Amino acid sequence: MSDKPVQGRMTADAEGEVIVFLIGMRINSFRAVRSWWPVFLAMPRMLKELSKDKSSGLRGYQLLMGGPRVLYTVQYWESKEKLFAYASAQDKEHRPAWAAFNRRAREGKGNVGIWHETYIVPAGSYENIYMNMPAFGLGAAAGVAPVARRGERAAERLGAA
């Protein structure tokens, strides 16, 4: 992903259904490093594994902070089937990370929390605009195209105009 802004008004060059997966952690006790540090380290390992495997279904992601205690990623997937396959694969990073988190959660008495949300967005039910921005969000995952190609207004891009 380039940090160089793309000049003008762009929109994501995505077609069809979009799977948006949000996943994160909340540090409930900064002093309990043994509880949250392994959780913190697990996500980069999974993202590295997924990014190396072009057939994994991960189209792109953004790492974000939700204040001093919350770290999360917004992920874009090709399909819910590929997301679910990764989550349940015995030979991938997710299963051992999930098992380790559950062990630590029982022992750590709530020192760290995790959460996730999955959104299956049908074709025609999303729109976006990026103005003088580097590729970001769905635009980074799917590429960008000039806004005029999909419609000048949000309502047009959603097919509501």
Rank of each mutant, 00 (worst) to 15 (best):
A32C: 00
G16V: 12
P122V: 06
K82E: 13
F30H: 01
A142Q: 09
M10C: 00
Y126K: 06
Y119Q: 10
M10R: 04
G108V: 05
A89R: 06
T73L: 09
W36G: 02
R45S: 04
R104F: 02
G24I: 08
M133K: 06
I129R: 13
R31W: 14
D13T: 03
T118A: 09
V33G: 02
E156A: 15
P134T: 07
A99I: 05
N128Y: 06
R34Y: 08
W98I: 00
R106L: 13
K92E: 07
P44V: 04
V144M: 15
P38F: 02
R31F: 12
R59L: 15
I19H: 03
T118Q: 12
T73A: 15
R95F: 06
L158A: 12
G108P: 06
G113P: 07
R45P: 01
H94F: 09
G60V: 12
H94Q: 07
Q7K: 15
A123W: 10
S51Q: 12
M10F: 06
R45Q: 09
P68K: 14
T73F: 01
K92N: 04
Y130A: 03
K80F: 00
F101W: 09
A89C: 03
S35G: 05
G66M: 10
E81Q: 14
T11V: 15
K52R: 14
M25H: 12
R104A: 14
R59P: 07
S51D: 06
M133F: 14
E152F: 04
S55H: 09
E156T: 12
F40R: 11
L64V: 08
R34C: 00
A123R: 09
A155D: 10
G124W: 12
R9A: 13
V74N: 09
N111S: 14
A12C: 09
G67C: 13
P38H: 01
R34G: 14
E81C: 00
F21H: 15
M10H: 13
P5H: 12
W77F: 10
F84T: 08
A42G: 01
A97C: 10
E127D: 15
F84H: 10
P146D: 02
P96W: 01
L47Y: 04
S125G: 05
I23S: 12
V112S: 00
L71I: 08
E93C: 01
S88G: 10
Y76V: 08
P96T: 03
S55N: 11
Y86T: 04
R149C: 00
V147P: 02
Q62C: 05
S2N: 13
S2W: 07
A123P: 05
R45W: 01
R26F: 01
R34S: 11
V121R: 10
K4P: 00
L50F: 03
G66T: 12
A140Q: 13
S51F: 03
D3K: 09
V147Y: 06
N128S: 15
N111L: 03
M10Y: 10
D91I: 02
P146V: 03
A85N: 11
S51T: 14
G24M: 10
S125Y: 11
Y61L: 10
W37R: 10
Y61M: 08
G110R: 07
A32E: 15
G159T: 14
A148N: 04
M43H: 03
A42M: 03
G143Y: 05
A145H: 01
F21G: 00
G24C: 11
G159F: 13
F30R: 11
M25P: 05
A141H: 07
Q90P: 02
Y76D: 11
